[in-house]
């Protein structure tokens, strides 16, 4: 036994206690019925119309918000990077550029210091019929914004909360690109568009994939955003599972559906692992 393994012991104990054992309990409940006999009914329950519908809605909403996150995050990451690259290479290096970039980072990071729950509740107060935004709109004699308690508000909440998880991996992979590769492409006569499609995009694919994973999974499993911003009218699969535990006290069904959800997550992780063999993306 070597030293590295020794140092891993605290984490090993931690993960056994708080990850492996709870997972085992979930699988035990998910694969048994009230009497403790083995059954697959709890897992198969996902095919019932109600559960399937909420799973489709969850998949749809999280897919849309992941795409929006990507389209918002990629340009932002490029802006953050461009500052760095120009500093490295000596082009356009100026103090104002660095300060400019710092402000962007600050604006971006600042809300993350606040609790997730509070941020989502704040959106509720902003979007409500008598909320802050509508008061301002009414003051300006503009038509009211009616997105609270609709799927749009849920997508907004997802994008807002999970955007950083997209920006950081994409930024990480952008910053790793050697500027000389880009210079070489330009020397060989590539225009901006060609540089982007032939050089930048392929080199950042691992980052994009891990960003997608990191946004898609929390979006797929969330129950809080839909509860607070969806007014309880749109039931995501996370809400179904949560209500099985808190209202219906049917732990078996709740665990069974969690196992199904876990399979989606594992599938997603396998896909990202295939794209990210050499571990270039990942990493927060």
């Amino acid at each position: 036994m070597n030293k590295k393994k020794l140092l891993g012991t605290p984490y090993f104990i931690w993960s056994t206690l708080f990850i492996l054992i709870p997972l085992g309990i979930v699988f035990y409940y998910g694969l048994t019925d009230e009497s403790g006999a083995f059954t697959l009914n709890n897992v198969m329950a996902i095919s019932s119309p109600g559960h399937a519908k909420s799973l489709w809605i969850s998949l749809g909403l999280s897919l849309v918000s992941t795409l929006i996150c990507l389209f918002l995050a990629y340009p932002l990451a490029m802006i953050l990077c461009s500052g760095d690259h120009s500093l490295q290479t000596g082009f356009l290096s100026s103090k104002s550029n660095a300060a400019h970039k710092n402000i962007i980072v600050l604006i971006f990071i600042l809300p993350m210091w606040m609790n997730f729950l509070l941020r989502t509740l704040a959106w509720q107060t902003l979007l409500e019929k008598t909320g802050v935004i509508n008061n301002i709109l009414a003051f300006l004699h503009l038509p009211a914004l009616k997105i609270i308690n609709t799927p749009y508000a849920i997508i907004l909440g997802m994008v807002y909360n999970f955007l950083p998880f997209m920006v950081l991996p994409v930024y990480n992979s952008l910053i790793k690109i050697d500027p000389n590769v880009i210079h070489a492409a330009r020397d060989l006569g590539a225009n901006e568009f060609q540089v982007f499609t032939k050089i930048t995009l392929p080199l950042t694919t691992p980052g994009i994939i891990s960003g997608i994973t990191m946004v898609f999974i929390p979006a797929l499993t969330t129950f809080l955003i839909s509860k607070l911003l969806g007014g309880g009218k749109i039931l995501l699969i996370g809400n179904v599972i949560e209500e099985e535990f808190t209202q219906a006290s049917n732990w078996h069904l709740g665990s069974g559906l969690s196992i199904v959800l876990m399979m989606f997550i594992i599938f997603n992780m396998v896909v990202s692992a295939v794209f990210d063999k050499d571990g270039k993306g990942g990493t927060l």
Partner: peptide, 9 residues
Amino acid sequence: NNLWKEVKV
């Protein structure tokens, strides 16, 4: 519970 779920979804 099942009827309520039908309403909610």
